[in-house]
């Protein structure tokens, strides 16, 4: 049964300044775990004042490596995001889709993901 998990960006980062790639990675780890398990993720940007493409690429852009566009569209929702930040996120998403269309990059990411899973097993 699909569950709906709410993730607060502010809570994960601990600050309204969501600018560091490392912080984006923390958000990504949670999103990937929820989506990977087939559950729905609702990502809340409540109280977030500043976002960068570096943060969003790490948090969300890299989801397009292991997951299909359909799966992300179906299982990920964002809420309480400022219109300008939503526009930035849309550009990050479009750039990520293009990035992973390069088959070499895609294979590399799949290979690294598999290696990580084997290391963790």
């Amino acid at each position: 049964m699909k569950r709906e998990m709410k993730i607060s960006v502010y809570e994960v980062v601990g600050s309204p300044l969501c600018v560091a790639s490392g912080d984006g990675q923390k958000v990504h780890n949670r999103l990937a775990a929820v989506i990977g398990a087939g559950h729905r993720a609702i990502l809340s940007f409540h109280n977030v004042s500043t976002l960068t493409s570096a943060f969003l690429n790490a948090a969300i852009g890299q989801l397009y490596g292991p997951f299909s566009e359909e799966k992300i569209r179906c299982l990920l929702k964002v809420e309480e995001i400022a219109p300008e930040d939503a526009a930035l996120l849309k550009r990050v998403v479009e750039t990520a889709k293009l990035y992973f269309k390069d088959p070499q990059r895609f294979e590399q990411v799949v290979r690294e993901t598999l290696e990580d899973e084997q290391d963790g097993a």
């Binding site: 493409s53 570096a54 750039t95």
Partner: peptide, 18 residues
């Protein structure tokens, strides 16, 4: 636009354009 030297699982190539 869309040019990046990024490799690995995290995409890039937007910062300078923005």
């Amino acid at each position: 636009e869309n040019n990046t030297t990024r490799r690995g699982p995290i995409p890039g190539g937007l910062g300078l354009k923005l």
